[in-house]
């Protein structure tokens, strides 16, 4: 089997969620897998203060040609991996386009603005519908729910990585990602591999 090609160069991948969910970890795992496969990768992250419960995003630019900037220009995302539903929509609003592919974990994390009554969290079904409408293709992966079944919401990250790989939108396969997972989770590798494979399965079913 020949190695798959990037569907576009640069390939612009947005990973989004809420501080503490594990954005950086996902971008690091995917990024490292790409670098090992010989790609030039740039990852821009929201860091620091916005880590504390704020919206976070990682911009990944993957290329065979050159080092791109850590910012995806507006309207130019190719893939959005959304760990939280409204954050996914926030990203679609700014970086979406008619060709964008979206993978979404439909588990809301309410902001203190919503909890405190200063903002409204939209109806989840409606939200998912909007995301679908704005995306060329959408996968809904109940990652948090499945992870909780496994004992910890943190396994959602491996599930989502699995979904991203399983969806086939990236020229990466299990073999490129598994060694990086092993290095990232030396202690809980078995459970994370189970989660990773679940993600692959979910996206294919």
């Amino acid at each position: 089997m020949t190695k798959k090609q990037l569907m576009k160069d640069p390939l612009n991948l947005v990973i989004t969620g809420v501080g503490g969910q594990g954005n950086v970890m996902i971008s690091l795992i995917i990024g490292n897998a790409f670098v090992r496969d010989g790609y030039i990768v740039t990852v821009g992250e929201t860091y620091g203060a916005s880590q504390r419960g704020g919206p976070v995003m990682s911009h990944m630019r993957i290329s065979k040609e050159t080092q791109y900037s850590p910012f995806i220009p507006d309207g130019c995302a190719d893939i959005i991996l959304g760990m939280e539903p409204v954050e996914t929509l926030r990203m679609l609003g700014r970086y979406g386009n008619p060709r964008v592919i979206t993978i979404i974990n439909p588990r809301p994390i309410y902001s203190i603005d919503v909890t405190g009554g200063h903002a409204e969290y939209p109806d989840l079904d409606k939200l998912v519908e909007i995301v679908k409408e704005l995306s060329a293709q959408t996968w809904i992966i109940n990652a948090t729910e499945e992870a909780q079944k496994m004992g910890s919401p943190m396994f959602a990250n491996a599930i989502l990585i699995g979904a991203l790989i399983g969806s086939g939108v990236l020229p990466l396969d299990k073999k490129s990602v598994e060694p990086v997972l092993r290095e990232t989770f030396p202690k809980e590798i078995e459970a994370n591999l189970v989660a990773f494979n679940k993600g692959i399965k979910f996206v294919k079913s």
């Binding site: 309207g75 409204v86 679609l92 609003g93 700014r94 386009n97 203190i112 200063h118 909007i130």
Partner: peptide
């Protein structure tokens, strides 16, 4: 950068549906 109609729509639905997320 993107189709103008898509852009308008995406911005509008994001604006009206995405709540603030304060630190």
């Amino acid at each position: 950068a993107r189709d103008a109609d898509y852009g308008k729509k995406a911005e509008a639905v994001a604006k009206s549906n995405v709540p603030e997320r304060s630190m």
